[in-house]
Design a protein around this nucleic acid. Structure first.
Length: 233
DNA sequence: AACACCGTCAACCGCAGGTTA
DNA sequence: GTAACCTGCGGTTGACGGTGT
């Protein structure tokens, strides 16, 4: 399948954005909203490709971005989500309002990988690095059908946070919404299960799912597909 | 002070997948 | 059914700042 380039490369700027470019982009989006990134640069008077504008807005200029350091809770949430979802940064970011996929990806590669390695955990498999055939009990066993699961809201009897993480049993599965779920969402009362809660972060700052619900309503209004996937346990 | 090295992160690139004509 | 278009995602790169020698 043939494909035209996303933009005319000869007539576009590349590299770091200037203050003026940022201002133009912000002003345009505030006035016209997001959408049609292909035509946005021309309409906004920017010599940038649409992809570049989208990235700049999503990763840097969006007003709802949190920025700043990740909290310990966010760290653990990212680790647990990664053990479930793998390198699905956009899905992980969807559970961390105010954080972008790019930000999380960078943070994973620069901080969390090292953190897990120092714990003796393989960042890709989430299993111990020194894996002997018998001794390598899975650290995290996603989607296994055993019913035991540590209570998410209580501490696991004096374990350190790293130990707690190491013994988290994440028996979760992601399913399509059931008719009941849809009924709930149609009636305006979303019963989507907060994954943070299931992972034990309900009460912490890392969980902003209630805030997300508001943004989901906003997204739904714009015809966007929600990433706030209901979970069946 | 000068240089090399390293870590961080914004931005780019190529591709996949959904939508439209 | 197919081609073209468009958006979003994930991997990678490169500029920049901080630190060590």
């Amino acid at each position: 399948m043939g494909r035209s380039p996303c933009c005319e490369k000869e007539h576009t700027n590349k590299g770091a954005w200037t203050k003026e470019e940022d201002d133009r982009l912000i002003r345009y989006i505030k006035k016209h909203g997001e959408g049609c990134w292909r035509t946005l640069p021309k309409a906004a008077g920017l010599l940038r490709c649409g992809k570049s504008c989208r990235l700049r807005w999503i990763n840097y200029l969006r007003p709802d971005l949190k920025r700043g350091n990740f909290t310990e809770e966010e760290d653990e949430l990212i680790i647990n989500l990664h053990s479930l979802l793998g390198n699905k940064w956009s899905l992980i970011a969807a559970r961390l309002p105010g954080r972008t996929d790019n930000e999380i990806k960078n943070y994973w590669n620069t901080h969390i990988k090292r953190k897990l390695l120092s714990r003796g955990i393989d960042p890709q498999t989430h299993r111990p690095l020194t894996t002997s055939a018998a001794g390598a009990a899975a650290v995290i066993t996603p989607a296994t059908p055993t019913p035991q699961q540590p209570s998410p809201t209580t501490s696991s009897g004096g374990l350190s946070s790293s130990e707690e993480t190491a013994y988290l049993n994440l028996e979760l599965s992601i399913s399509l919404p059931t008719p009941a779920d849809e009924e709930h969402s149609n009636s305006g009362s979303s019963h989507a299960v907060c994954l943070c809660q299931k992972l034990g972060f309900q009460s912490g700052n890392a969980c902003n799912c209630s805030k997300m619900a508001a943004s989901i309503n906003y997204a739904a209004r714009d015809g966007m597909q929600t990433l706030f996937t209901p979970l069946s346990l």
